[in-house]
């Protein structure tokens, strides 16, 4: 197993000619995709377009069929790579939160710090508190996930990912499972993160967020990237027919 060596100056995420099949169904049909350090890239597109699969390929929750993915200059599609090392540097936030229901909020935030980063209990707790503060729910550290609202759960999930000190964050439709009045809290946390310079890849349906916070907007349909560019331009003046059709439905 090779110890991954970060290459300074390399792009955060670099995807080349990525193909992914589920059985005989081709979900990704040759994707070239790129996220620079400190950049916020939003990926939009109709459901089934492959945008979540692309995001999940970046931390190998889905294994690509062919093509290569580099994260900070390290080829993660190399079969000899230590996947766990790579993953601990990539924060992941899921649509369905996926908090650990048998652990308190504090347990959720500290378990990987202790087990993966070998931090002491007190050090892990200190970092956890700092991140709970950051997402705006410092008072919930003893609560269990089931007793939190969806918005609070998702903010705990973000704090959990941040507690591993990731170099970048992946968001897989982070607000799609939330009641409308709770979406704003989560987006605000994400906006703060972006302003601090966090590298982010966000699969989302929140066009307002994409326009306001995103550095780049990528439109995917049917396993291909059809259009990309500055969010305000893509949203205001889409070039491709299918981008126009999609935007006219959601805007």
């Amino acid at each position: 197993m090779t110890e991954p060596q970060i290459k300074p100056g390399a792009p955060a995420i670099d995807v080349n000619d990525l193909h992914k099949y589920f059985g005989s169904h081709e979900v990704l049909k040759g994707i070239d995709f790129h996220v620079d350090n400190g950049e916020v890239v939003c990926v939009i597109g109709p459901s089934g377009s492959g945008k979540s699969t692309l995001l999940r390929c970046v931390n190998l929750l889905e294994v690509p069929t062919s093509g290569s993915i580099f994260v900070e200059g390290v080829e993660i599609t190399d079969p000899d790579i230590d996947v766990d090392k790579i993953r601990s540097r990539i924060g992941m936030v899921f649509q369905s939160f996926n908090l650990f229901p048998h652990l308190s909020v504090m347990g959720n935030l500290t378990i990987a710090q202790q087990r993966v980063k070998n931090r002491s209990k007190s050090e892990a707790a200190q970092i956890a508190r700092k991140n709970l503060e950051k997402v705006g729910i410092p008072e919930k550290e003893d609560a269990y996930p089931a007793h939190l609202s969806g918005g609070q759960q998702q903010r705990v999930a973000i704090a959990r990912a941040l507690s591993m000190d990731p170099d970048m964050m992946l968001f897989d439709e982070p607000t799609s499972a939330l009641d409308p009045e709770l979406v704003g809290d989560v987006l605000a946390v994400m906006k703060d993160l972006a302003n601090e310079g966090m590298t982010m890849m966000v699969v989302t349906h929140e066009m307002g967020f994409a326009r306001e916070v995103g550095d780049k907007l990528v439109f995917m349909d049917d396993g291909l990237i059809l259009e990309e560019g500055v969010p305000s331009q893509v949203l205001a003046d889409p070039q491709h027919d299918r981008t126009q059709a999609f935007l006219s439905k959601v805007l």
């Binding site: 929750l61 766990d84 993953r87 369905s96 996926n98 908090l99 087990r115 993966v116 980063k117 999930a157």
Partner: peptide, 21 residues
């Protein structure tokens, strides 16, 4: 399955995710 995915995303190896989560 989301539980394993969350654990693995945090860098836990498969056996650790099984044992702790």
């Amino acid at each position: 399955t989301g539980q394993v995915e969350a654990a693995r995303s945090l860098g836990m190896p498969q056996t650790r995710a099984m044992r702790s989560i």
